[in-house]
């Protein structure tokens, strides 16, 4: 069941992505290769526009993509992707004053 669902999700992505390239790319610098799948079902703003999230929140998000929506992420890649997502926000200096994070 899962394999066919993924097939579907990924099959629709290239169509939209290639449409005149208007979607902002997800800068994949330093990303684990497995993170490339993060723009299969939605464009990268879904990731770039998130507030600064804790590592635990990013990990929960990656797991949610995998279990609820069927993102093809191997168990061994979950932490790598989550670490990268959290660290790129820190590097970008995101979350200045006024943005409280979950305790």
């Amino acid at each position: 069941m899962k394999a066919s669902l993924l097939g579907f999700a990924l099959a629709i992505a290239p169509v939209a992505v290639s449409a005149q390239g208007a979607e902002p790319p997800l800068p994949l610098t330093g990303a684990p290769p497995a993170a490339a799948v993060c723009v299969a079902c939605h464009s990268s703003e879904m990731i770039d526009y998130q507030p600064r999230l804790t590592l635990a929140q990013w990990r929960a998000t990656v797991l949610k993509m995998k279990t609820a929506y069927g993102a093809p992420v191997a168990d061994k890649d979950v932490d790598d992707i989550a670490n990268w997502l959290a660290s790129r926000q820190v590097n970008a200096g995101q979350a200045a004053a006024g943005s409280r994070r979950l305790p």
Partner: peptide, 25 residues
């Protein structure tokens, strides 16, 4: 709010000026 920079776009999905939160979906 923090990380609140967005693009104001015109002509997406036949719309007038809108705040682009996500291109797809």
């Amino acid at each position: 709010f923090d990380n609140g920079k967005r693009r104001l776009v015109e002509g997406v999905e036949g719309k007038g000026q809108m705040i682009l939160q996500r291109t797809r979906a």
